[in-house]
Amino acid sequence: MTDVTGPEGKRRYPLRWHVMDALEGAAGVLWPRRMAPFTGWLLLAPALLLVAVLVLGMVQIAESSLHTLDRSTFLPSEDYTLENYRTVADSATYLKVIWRSLYGSFLTVVFTLILAFPYSYILVRTNSAFTRKALLVALFLPFFIGQVVRAYGWLIILGNAGLVNDALELIGVERQRLLFSFPTVVFGLVQYMLPFAVLLLAPALTAIPREVETAAGSLGANWARVLWHVVLPMARPGLIGATLVVSTLSLTDFAMPAMLGGGSQDFIANAIYDQFFRTADQGLGSALALLLVAIGSLLVGAIFAAFGAGTLAMGGRE
């Protein structure tokens, strides 16, 4: 940029600067200085619009949930009715599916946290750079591989002629039918959720100074008491964030129940999919979808109201 301040009359004004001036000029006209207080909103506008697609989708679902399927024409009915919701409420099958999803999601949260806590703890506290890197890589790889491929791996491992059954046979246990059962679906969900949970827990553990634990220890607390009275309470934002994400993602999961449950262990998402693509009853499917949104929001709302957003807050400001 030194060439600009040459001798008088010989100033060169680079093309880039012309472009920048033109841009600044245009910006000044399109977005005058008095609009400055709204600049934040201008920058946010595209994101707000993009998320609006989702909101529109919710409106569409709500709309179509109010029409029943006319069995004679296979078209949605003209008039508005709450019939679909009544069908869901009266159906023992759907109540069972909803219960199974809630119970599965609860179990997933418990087991995921039991595994994610020591994982994050060692990840944060270890002195070995190699251990830390290895644990991080082991965490990110599956996160980037995607659900389908991971479920496929488990199909091979847990299949009737799979690795686990081979091992069982070696130690003299009869081959088991492991796939397509509820515990297997929960297991699949746990291993799927583990990276999410660790990534939400670890920042909270980083925020706890090592000295606090040392101090508690030197005051006579054994490790279990340090953990229970010091580390866990201080890790609360992380535990909340992890619980929020794991519970909602597993409650609404489709792939694990579909692939590891093999149709016998459907969660709500699978029931919705079936209504849309097997039975082609869009209204009933929409009612179920809206119900799932409601259950999920209630869950999130309850955790939010009770504990705050934890490590889930965006934008650095709480």
Partner: peptide, 20 residues
């Protein structure tokens, strides 16, 4: 509002966008 993509279940977002 901006967390909606995470709080709305994927199956509902997907079906909503399918309809839209």
């Amino acid at each position: 509002y901006l967390l909606l993509p995470f709080t709305v279940p994927l199956i509902a977002s997907g079906i909503g966008m399918m309809l839209v």
